[in-house]
Design a protein around this nucleic acid. Structure first.
Lengths: 338, 338
DNA sequence: CTGAAAGCGCTAACAG
DNA sequence: CTGTTAGCGCTTTCAG
């Protein structure tokens, strides 16, 4: 049924080693024989048996793409962009295996034989267990989206802090002083980074920081809605809100409209990430684009090169964000007219 | 370094065959020995080498989840829900391998050794090549989302036609007569099904079908926007629009607002799928929920059972849709007041 | 119920 | 440059 190396060897009257060499582009073979072998291999539709290869080479041809969770991803867009970015680089001979960390009770089954390398889309320190498990087992691992202080780690990061700084600055330049934030989930590094960008911008521009203007969300639309309602209940509601992602911004929009207020005339709103839907909101959402698929792509490329060249060395790569100016930010309403 | 069956055998002074039997729950072994073996295996953190298993058993422990494309998925939500549904059922010993059909020049590498089974999220007949390739190679395959006439095929389907019928009926019951549709991509089965539901509803209720009210989209927000603009340009714009998915509905909303019209006072709008963002639109979007993750889950369960019991028999399973009534549909404006 | 022997398809020394 | 030999870790006959 299936064609093996031996079959080809028999037909061509060479040893199976020779065939193997030809198939793997070994230098230890004449162009002449190689050509002959490759030709009949193609003719016979030879497909390598990866299980056999794997067994002898002690590897798997599997690339693991891990998320903290797959069951309760907060943003489908985020998930999709990550997979897309990684997938675009993974070549034919690898299997892209998608997984959630929360599916494992322990990491025993994650070993060199199971994964040639791992890409981890990480949010918080909870994922460290996997990172160090991989390092311990000498499985090449690339950590996306969360900086790990350890210099030995390969990190692909989004420059969120700068992006947040930019967004907040834009609000300030529009005359806003009463600027609130809807934070993302506590413990997520993205949350910390974006908050730092926010705080730095306020400090730089000497805008006072107001405790009531800092409300917590968890990156879901629902939480953005709730958070915004809370902000609207304060005695002096903000004139501008920086939501730590677009999903929460959409939730906030709903709360604002329900309160009978207008965007941006009454309240300006800026999001983060730039989701598909953001430009289709009314008004369209000003936001900070984060090229997640780029992060995924860069991570996968790096991982593949590590596997191929067996040269794992810690490294931090930053992918820039991009400020996207749309309609949800306007000049601060002056107190008079209000 | 790694513990093998031989290691355990040596320690316990039994043959490796016996160990293998214990590990695989064979009946040909005494409970006594089995217990002893299992214990030391656990103690030693034994992890089976799947490459070796695969080689001898001529399988891979890979489950392939295929999409028509992964690069240009129209809806991240759709993608995510599918993966989530399938993933929730795939057990530890399988790898969930995600892939796009458009990544393959030919399907040579897709054989029994590479995939124990395939789940195909299918949109159109273009995917048939893969389906028949799998069937030909005796790879168990479950086709989601698109009915294939062939009785030999396992199909998990969403009852889109009924869902669309329900949605349109709801519009009619609200007094609408001038009902337009924004169709999805031509050739997609979902498009055909939803259109049939729409047409049947009109016919049943004796509402005339108007050619100008049938506009084509491709399931993207952008296309919904463009389509709606076109509808608004007609001499007698519709009072209600059924968009074949929520993404296009969002695009349509934007176009409607830009024209200075209100939803639902001037135009009622109903979508399909029920995306995360749909309930956060203002007004919130009335739609038909399609439980994609359920489709994925059911498909994966079925596939696993086929693999385990080696009993591939064609079957069609329908998953019901659910009408979600929100704010984007209102009574038809009467001509007078307009 | 247990063990000995063979072999899955491939790559990797080693020898020529 | 080519071939011979061995062996990866496991399951599966076949004998006992």
């Amino acid at each position: 049924m299936t064609v093996t190396i031996k079959d080809i060897a028999k037909i061509l009257n060479v040893s199976h080693t020779t065939v193997s060499r030809a198939l793997n582009n070994s230098p230890l073979i004449s162009d002449e024989t190689k050509k002959r072998i490759l030709e009949t291999a193609k003719q016979l539709n030879y497909v390598p048996n990866y299980s056999a290869k794997s067994l002898v080479q002690n590897r798997s041809y599997n690339i693991g793409l891990f998320f903290s969770t797959i069951t309760q991803v907060t943003s489908p867009g985020f998930f999709y962009e990550t997979v897309r970015g990684v997938h675009s680089v993974i070549t034919d001979n690898y299997n892209l295996v998608v997984n959630g960390i929360d599916n494992y009770k322990d990491f025993q089954s994650i070993d060199t034989k199971r994964f040639d390398g791992i890409i981890l889309m990480s949010q918080s320190e909870k994922d460290n267990a996997l990172v160090y498990h991989a390092l311990d087992r000498h499985i090449p691992i690339v950590v996306l989206n969360r900086e790990i202080a350890d210099a030995g780690i390969v990190n692909i990061l989004s420059a969120d802090r700068r992006g947040a700084y930019h967004a907040v600055t834009h609000l300030i330049e529009n005359g806003h002083v009463k600027i609130a934030i809807i934070e993302g989930e506590k413990g997520f590094q993205a949350t910390t980074e974006r908050k730092e960008g926010f705080l730095t911008a306020l400090i730089d521009k000497q805008i006072p920081i107001h405790g009531d203007y800092i409300v917590e969300g968890n990156y879901t639309m629902e939480s953005g809605y709730t958070a915004m309602k809370q902000l609207l209940r304060t005695s002096h509601p903000p004139t501008a809100v920086f939501s730590f992602n677009d999903e929460m911004a959409v939730g906030a929009m709903k709360a604002i409209f329900e309160a009978g207020l207008r965007i941006p005339q009454d309240i300006s709103l800026v999001g983060f990430d730039d989701r598909q839907f953001s430009s289709y909101m009314t008004p369209s959402l000003t936001t900070v684009r984060r090229a997640i698929s780029e992060v995924g792509r860069a991570g996968a490329k790096k991982l593949l090169s590590i596997i191929d060249n067996n040269d794992y060395v810690g490294q931090k790569v930053y992918i820039d964000t991009q400020f996207i100016r749309r309609e949800s930010v306007g000049p601060a309403p002056n107190e008079q007219s209000k």
